[in-house]
Amino acid sequence: MQILSIAAAGMTNAQTRFDTGARRTAAAPLADLAGETVERLQAKTALDANAAVARTADDMTGTLLDILA
Results as ranks from 00 to 15, higher is better:
A8C: 02
A46W: 06
N13C: 09
T45G: 08
A52M: 08
A43M: 13
T25I: 07
G21Q: 11
T37I: 09
A26G: 08
L30S: 12
T25W: 04
A31I: 03
A34M: 10
G21F: 00
A46R: 08
A7F: 02
A54V: 05
D66W: 02
L68K: 10
T45P: 07
A54N: 03
A26D: 10
L68N: 04
E36H: 12
A28S: 08
G35S: 05
Q15W: 06
A69W: 00
Q2I: 05
L64A: 07
R17N: 14
F18H: 15
L64T: 06
T20R: 15
T20F: 01
A27E: 10
V38L: 15
L33Y: 09
F18P: 13
A69K: 06
T20E: 14
L65Y: 00
A52D: 09
A54F: 00
K44M: 14
A34H: 01
T12M: 07
S5C: 06
A43E: 08
T20C: 13
A31E: 15
T37W: 09
A27D: 11
A34T: 02
L41H: 09
T45Y: 01
A7I: 10
R24L: 15
V38M: 14
A51P: 01
R23T: 05
R24N: 14
T37G: 12
L4R: 12
T56H: 02
R55E: 06
A31N: 11
V38K: 15
A8W: 01
A31W: 04
Q42I: 00
A69V: 04
T56L: 07
A52N: 09
D66K: 11
S5H: 05
T20W: 11
I3R: 15
V53L: 09
G10H: 12
T56Q: 05
R40C: 12
D32F: 03
Q15N: 15
Q15P: 13
L65S: 04
I6F: 03
A9H: 10
L47W: 01
I67Q: 04
Q15I: 03
D19S: 15
L65V: 07
G10S: 13
A9Q: 14
T45Q: 13
R40I: 08
R55G: 01
A49C: 04
R40H: 06
E39V: 02
L64E: 06
L64G: 06
T37C: 14
A31T: 02
T12C: 01
G35T: 04
T25D: 15
D32R: 13
G35C: 09
K44T: 06
A9Y: 03
A43Y: 08
Q2S: 11
T63L: 03
S5W: 01
I3L: 14
F18G: 14
A31D: 12
P29D: 01
V38E: 14
G10T: 05
A57G: 01
A31Q: 12
N50S: 07
A14H: 05
A69M: 07
R23I: 02
P29G: 07
G21T: 02
D48C: 08
R17K: 14
A57T: 02
D19P: 12
G35R: 12
A9I: 03
